[in-house]
């Protein structure tokens, strides 16, 4: 096997096929049934593109995100913590990921994960009102949003304006079906990208097909 570095603690692993992996912060522990394997005394977890949109974007050729060890991350729409666990691997023990999730049922898994991974700070609440959720941090190095709401773009713009540091990167996993079920996917993406571009610089807009249907990942930089 051979590893090629992508970002901090994230590599492409080559062993007959190409797979994205992240260094396991909690060795021998799986999060969602992903494959674990050892290489040169370190344990890695497969980062499945069918389960995680961030991974799918990297598979689809996105440039490495500006997300490093020690970063403070605001993660909106954490769900049960699948992608959050890989962000937790990336930022490692020195970093913090504030993971906001509105559904208490999904939150249960997130809380269980946070008890094992101490760099995850779970918050059960609405991404529209992050300021009111009692989070001690007011600025983050990276912001990621994956929520299936009609006004997801507005929520993203608001939160990036408020919480992301200047010069920082942010990404939104856009679910077009939540915005309009009947309209053409490409048109919606174009429209939403235009809306975001009025505020921030668009670095990339990646259609996640076939890993995730009807989803696009849009990466921006705050000037």
């Amino acid at each position: 096997m051979e590893l090629k570095r992508v970002m901090d603690n994230v590599c492409w692993a080559f062993d007959g096929r190409k797979r994205l992996v992240s260094l396991n912060l909690t060795p021998s522990k799986q999060v969602y049934g992903e494959e674990l394997f050892e290489f040169q005394g370190k344990e890695y977890r497969e980062w499945n593109p069918f389960r995680s949109k961030m991974s799918a974007a990297l598979y689809k050729g996105a440039r490495p995100l500006e997300l490093k060890e020690g970063d403070t991350v605001l993660y909106l729409g954490a769900s049960s913590g699948t992608t959050v666990s890989h962000v937790s691997d990336i930022i490692s023990n020195g970093g913090k990921v504030y993971a906001v999730e509105i559904s208490e049922e999904m939150g249960v898994n997130l809380v269980l994960l946070s008890e094992i991974r101490k760099n995850i700070f779970p918050i059960i609440g609405d991404a529209r009102k992050v300021g009111e959720l009692g989070m001690a941090v007011t600025s983050c190095d990276f912001l990621y949003q994956d929520i299936a709401q009609r006004d997801q773009t507005d929520i993203f713009i608001k939160n990036v304006s408020k919480f992301l540091k200047r010069g920082g990167q942010a990404a939104i996993a856009l679910k077009t079906k939540s915005i309009d079920v009947s309209a053409d996917t490409r048109r919606i993406v174009d429209r939403e990208v235009k809306k975001i571009s009025e505020h921030f610089k668009i670095l990339a807009s990646i259609d996640l097909y076939p890993y995730q249907k009807g989803h696009s990942l849009i990466i921006i930089k705050k000037g």
Binding site: T72, K96, Y98, V111, S114, E115, K118, N119, I120, F121, P122, I123, A136, V137, T138, S139, D141, K165
Partner: peptide
Amino acid sequence: MNDKPDSDNSKYVE
């Protein structure tokens, strides 16, 4: 950067 850095996540988990 953080005005009041959280030392660990236990408060959030609770």
